[in-house]
Write a protein that binds this DNA or RNA. Structure first.
Lengths: 277, 277
DNA sequence: CGGTCCATTGAGCTTAGTCAAAGAGCGTGG
DNA sequence: CCACGCTCTTTGACTAAGCTCAATGGACCG
């Protein structure tokens, strides 16, 4: 998927993506590094006390691996709070006849559920799109729920993370409601690139896209066939290249213009936050 | 708008809707009643202390009226927190070429901005769709931000309200991404009905829809013309009637079936909350 | 009575979906 | 090492949902 001139990919990507997590690199090494991405992200949202930092760093122990396609949570039950350390997951909802809509992607450093204490059943499910490693964030939720002033910084960070998530949902609404298939595709890829960059998982012009075109289609509200054609067109227009599950951005400016990328999107909600931290 | 067999409506509805707020009923009477709807909604989210209730009731003084089309807030600036007492507003975003997407509707009892302390610029704007009366909620935000244990109940309510808002955004995403025009229309009308019922503004089978088909189109991601045709079809199929800006539901079951209304939608996020309060 | 805002219709077109089939990698069992 | 099967991508042909353009008519306003 997402690939073009020669090989298939999706599957390949998944494997390629998951590989470092399993045989190559022992989990003990991967997980902490994933955690670090999260702690630095949270730290950027506001100054944290030593106690809070300690709490964050202490999370690392309760990691868990989820196989591709595994339902990590949700779907009528309260969502236990976890943080994605590696791999891609998504929030999704199915319609009665099997149609699926992907609501949002969950990338390394993203929170599954919410850090704010809310034990309510949710109306969607979270599913692993690749192999995924997560860590239990209950300790954070409890600290925040305690209302202890010592955890003010964490509480604030939790609210800011939630705000960023809402911003992504609004972007998705605008994409689906008012953009053409072509624009949606470019806009989503820009969003993913921006988020992965923040997480330290992308270079200024490349990033891994370990998902099939079917997943992309379900996120963009398109059919697989049309997704494929649109992506081909985007490549043909020289905006980007895809190869082996890697996206290489060739013309960032053109992409931003096409997608009406207002810099108010995604990253801003992050850079802005950082600025105010 | 939304009307069929004979008159236009949208404009008419707006007038009809706004009227009680202006000449007929003095604002002093309307506002408090609108506030009551909000306080009872918040109360339903969890037990509040006498102090918290007092704070809620004390909000009533700082009301403000917004003319139709007036921008109430947002658009790059931090959003000041307000509560809608009467009238309809919406969150929206414009694309560079003028396309508009309505992200969500704000009905009486809904919060504009957030009750949680987050002074960040936002990426959308809030616009009055009819004449709207709002009240300043800064006092609530401050109380919640203080972290004072006396306001735990309010803080929790604020989180639950925010959660409900996110649920609505997810619904909107599914509608736009995976439902047909016909399904979207029915689903949105069901959502509005459910929300208005909660606010005490709808009977079991009727509610006022004071917006033009153009607004509906921008919320549903459709063209005005197609919105008109779809609505006609829904009426023709006997699911509902529209007259003078009032919607009368004729076949609730059929509507729910058509729209894949899972009862996990909207109101549940409210009834559930209430249950847990 | 003209002007404005909406709803409604008709005609023609475009975008995106459906159905079906063919290839390309990859892994597996023999 | 190779054939087979699985997943995913790509293509072609056809269909249909939804859009654009243009015009008409009703209601209301000044």
């Amino acid at each position: 998927m997402i690939q073009s001139q020669f090989q298939p990919l999706a599957y390949q990507n998944v494997v390629r993506f998951a590989k470092p997590l399993d045989p190559m690199t022992p989990r003990a090494i991967v997980a902490p590094s994933g955690l670090h991405a999260f702690t630095s992200r949270v730290s950027a949202l506001g100054k944290l006390s030593a106690e809070e930092l300690l709490l964050l760093q202490g999370l690392g122990r309760f990691t868990r691996s989820h196989a591709q396609h595994e339902e990590i949570g949700g779907d009528g039950k309260p969502m236990m709070s976890r943080v994605v350390l590696s791999g891609w997951a998504c929030q999704q909802r199915m319609l009665g006849d099997g149609r699926r809509q992907i609501i949002s992607f969950l990338l390394p450093g993203d929170v599954i559920g919410s850090l704010e204490p809310l034990d309510l059943p949710v109306d969607h499910s979270v599913v692993a799109l690749t192999q995924v490693i997560t860590v239990d964030a209950t300790a954070l939720v409890k600290a925040i729920a305690s209302g202890d002033p010592a955890y003010r910084g964490l509480a604030r960070a939790a609210r800011l993370l939630a705000l960023g998530e809402i911003t992504l949902l609004r972007d998705q609404i605008v994409r689906l409601g008012r953009q053409t298939a072509y624009e949606r595709m470019v806009h989503l890829l820009l969003e993913l690139h921006a988020r992965l960059k923040m997480a330290g998982l992308a270079t200024p012009d490349t990033f891994a896209l370990p998902i099939s075109q079917e997943i992309l289609a379900d996120a963009l509200g398109l059919s697989v066939v049309h997704t494929n054609r649109v992506l081909q067109q985007v490549r043909h227009d020289g905006l980007l290249e895809t190869r082996s599950g890697q996206v290489k951005i060739l013309d960032l400016e053109a992409m931003r213009t096409v997608a009406d990328w207002t810099a108010t999107t995604v990253e801003p909600s992050a850079s802005r936050l950082a600025r105010l931290g």
